[in-house]
Design a protein around this nucleic acid. Structure first.
Lengths: 187, 187
DNA sequence: GTGATTATTTATCTTATGATAAATTCTTTG
DNA sequence: CAAAGAATTTATCATAAGATAAATAATCAC
């Protein structure tokens, strides 16, 4: 749990009693490379923290596998469109490497907010940061060319290109694998 | 203020004292069509509620005006990437019609969270909903064709196409005005 | 209401990216 | 470590959308 609490400390420090209580609704889980952590059609009731490894959220459009996002060590992952609406998700979460996660029961977590305002504050800040990320991503998808998006990613997150198969990176960037390969080929 | 409180009631009802306190940090402001409500380079310190009219958030990419989003009556607007990071925004907010807004001082609002947990809860829910919207928009920009995006918008938000000049709609969809016109032309 | 400005459409040509297929290279597993 | 399978690249062709320019339509200001 140490990794989780270190990360929380950076976002919004919570008091010892809240840490204790939070611990009680967490459990560590392992998934080997390639395995789904949460399936399509399942309603999201868990917030994960990536302790070790990488995961992706993906879905299918007309039988094509599309990666919505990646999350590396020290990040939180959940399928927002399901977690916040209570509807089944059309997306899955998959381990890209052998991955260790801390699973937080979202129902219990949200209930704690009534008695632990610092946990609600913490969560709000996590969501705010995620929201800023997605807004920036919309900007990049709106009018940047595929090549610009690739180069920006290469610069901002070289880890992605080292640890993630290119076929997943391609759909994340909104292009086909063949196009990405062509773009990489140019110098 | 009635419109604001009706909308809040739908999201997360707050107690009368919180309403009173919230009122004290709000003020109504008017902008005529075409006027900027907040300028590029300004650090966002205000959350707006649209009482009447429509606004858009926009920015420039290589001298091209790009619309990031629209907000109609009963919605909240702020430039998240500035509000949550404290950095100056590269974006502006503009009134597309003559618009009446309720301006909420974000610094004061965030301070209230320490004493009014129901206001923090309300705000969290507003952000969660906005986050879900942006995640869905990423999905549409990732692999839908321009024509699919146009038709989806036409179905989901016909108001946008009735009240917003097409040049703004085009960049919102991630295409040029000429392309949008062509797509509309096909039947 | 008329001229000026702005928005939208239409036309033509160009280009980035998609689709498909095949050739490599890399990875896994028995 | 060899064979099988998966990932990546390369090649060719097709197409959706960009760029530019010009025509038309709508809106605004006096």
């Amino acid at each position: 749990m140490q990794e989780l609490f270190s990360q929380i400390e950076l976002i919004y420090p919570i008091n010892p009693e809240s840490k204790q209580t939070l611990s009680s609704i967490c459990k560590e889980v392992n998934f080997s490379k390639g395995k789904n952590i949460q399936e399509i059609g399942h309603t999201c009731k868990t917030i994960y923290f990536v302790k070790k490894g990488v995961v992706r959220i993906y879905y299918f459009k007309e039988a094509i596998d599309i990666t919505e996002s990646f999350e590396f060590e020290n990040s939180f992952v959940a399928r927002a469109e399901s977690l916040f609406t209570g509807k089944p998700s059309r997306k899955a979460i998959q381990a890209i490497e052998d991955t260790t996660l801390i699973a937080i029961d979202s129902t219990k977590f949200f209930q704690l907010f009534d008695t632990h305002p610092d946990l609600e504050r913490l969560f709000r800040k996590i969501i705010e940061a995620s929201y800023v990320n997605t807004v920036n991503r919309i900007e990049s998808l709106q009018f940047n060319t595929a090549e610009e998006r690739y180069k920006t990613l290469l610069k901002a997150a070289p880890d992605v290109l080292k640890r993630i198969p290119l076929k997943y990176v391609a759909s994340y960037l909104g292009i086909t694998q063949v196009s990405l390969s062509r773009i990489r080929g140019i110098k």
